[in-house]
Design a protein around this nucleic acid. Structure first.
Lengths: 211, 211
DNA sequence: TAGATTGTTAATCGATTAACAATC
DNA sequence: TAGATTGTTAATCGATTAACAATC
């Protein structure tokens, strides 16, 4: 029911989970309200930016008081659509895949990994947590039966494009890709790539050559 | 020997590994030269941006010709300091930690994970690849003996700050943090946090509520 | 009421893109 | 030479920050 949507930049969307994570902590500590100034101090961000980010989506605060923690948590979850059930499929049950599928255990939202796939016949039909690893030929049927919208790719680079194609074919709307490769998908499908080794390489730049 | 350094933005530094990754592919395919136009097409980026990014660090191309792949690969590695040996320590040998330590097997640069640590006595002294998992009380001695400059944190959120403190105390200059928490470190230490669940949450925003 | 803090407009800052002279 | 493509300046675009009236 978002009426005012002037056009939200990706930078804003990426900050919302940051706010959410901290607000969840405040919630646990039973803190009722928080100001943008306090939030900014804790997160090393400009308070004006925080107010502006939130104001894109509505008037969530009260002048002179600040933001009510419980209310804001709910609102941000709504904005991020974490209040709807959202089923996720993960392909590639190596160490990274398993690490991500453990996310289910900690989750506070309705984003759930509901199916695991792997090409390795030795892994197929073994279980991780409560989920059975399935063979890839079951992908399409499972995605449509469980109404899965989002996919995570944690397979080696050489098979990532193939898996992406299969996910798109199965009707997936968004992909979080951990393979170090640029995926080609139709424009309607959203891809976000997270390359852990590239992060390391970028960090090396800031290393002081001496010392 | 970088003389001209007008002040490079983080956005630029984060794009260099993207260029590098693609150039490595061209190198493997024995392609000699590439233009910014071609690079831009392949990477979905603006060619002017690519030229500008590279020009911050020197004149690497030739007018009318483009960039020589081998030369540019070397230059970018130099800029990112991937031509120096750079030793990395990883703390937390859960699935994510193991996934990252496998990076050693694929590496094309001199960035190497040389030590693994874990708090769990059952893991200590077991091996992952060629590395023995060490107990945390050996951290400081190992970091200084092996001249380790960079650390990766893949422990649960509740112990991440403690580990960060220990890394800083041991003399680490940069930290790549995968725990979902904002770390407090002295200003001279560089921290980059990569929160995989936040990526998923941000992606949920773009989900079409219908369909 | 006085103090605090929002939501929002205006000012600033920085990053991206376009354009083009230089030149291979 | 003619065509291609760089390096770089200028123009544009967008994001961040400051400032402040509104108001709890």
């Amino acid at each position: 029911m978002q009426l005012k949507t002037p056009k939200i930049s990706e930078a804003v969307v990426r900050r919302l989970p940051v706010y959410l994570r901290y607000l969840e902590q405040l919630k646990e500590r039973s803190i009722r309200t928080v100001s943008s100034l306090e939030l900014g101090n804790q997160l090393d961000m400009n308070p004006a930016q925080i107010r502006k980010d939130l104001a894109y989506f509505g008037e969530f605060g009260r002048k002179g008081i600040g933001y009510e923690v419980l209310y804001l948590v709910d609102k941000i979850k709504q904005i991020l659509k974490l209040d709807h059930e959202l089923s996720v499929v993960l392909v590639g049950t190596g160490h990274l895949g398993i690490a991500l599928s453990n996310y289910n255990n900690y989750k506070r939202d309705k984003l759930t990994i509901v199916a695991l796939f792997d090409a390795d016949p030795n892994k197929v039909n073994t279980e991780i947590g409560t989920l059975r690893i399935q063979p890839l030929h079951e992908l399409k049927e499972t995605v449509s039966r469980l109404q899965i919208k989002m996919g995570i790719i944690t397979v080696p680079a050489h098979s990532a494009q193939e898996v992406a194609d299969a996910l798109v074919e199965a009707g997936i709307k968004a992909i979080l890709n951990f393979a170090p490769i640029k995926l080609r998908v139709p424009p309607k499908v959203i891809v976000r790539t997270s390359d852990l080794t590239m992060e390391l390489q970028a960090l090396a730049y800031y290393m002081d050559p001496e010392s």
